[in-house]
Amino acid sequence: MQSPDLFLPSAYLPVLLMLLIGFLFGLGGILFGNLVRPKHYYSLKLTPYECGNDPSGLPWQRITIRFFPIAILFAVFDVEVGLLYAWCIGFSELNSLGFYSMLLFLVILFIGFIYDFKKGLLDWYKRL
């Protein structure tokens, strides 16, 4: 293994390349379409869709706070999954302390999850 001072992450170059090619592919399609497609715009065509009525007010209204607990729980469990992956990789070299501490970690988080569950934070139709 090389020392980090001289390390180049060349194995990840194809991922970056593929990301760029995917982006350029879509862009190329749009730019090519720009040459051939018709462009007859009038103001009625550019109004946002609202089931036939004239749109009322700006679209960016206050959204429900319901999405916020989902985002927080997602962040919490994402960190948990990340730690879990680190645990999975070193599994065969763990002693019993390392093994049970992770299981206890999962149980602690699951108790917190059940608390939220029981208090109705996950029932979408309940008011917060």
Binding site: P69, I72, L73, A75, V76, V79, E80, L83, A86, W87, I89, G90, E93, L94, N95, L97, G98, F99, S101, M102, L104, F105, I108, L109, I111, G112, F113, Y115, D116, K119, L121
Partner: peptide, 30 residues
């Protein structure tokens, strides 16, 4: 692999600190 071994075998206390930190927002949310 080495990092995971060191973290979970020797510094397991950090996991409990993390568990505490993570369960905080779940309770604080409600």
């Amino acid at each position: 692999k080495i990092l995971s071994k060191i973290l979970f075998n020797d510094y397991w206390i950090t996991i409990y600190i993390l568990a505490f930190l993570l369960s905080l927002p779940m309770i604080a949310l409600y």
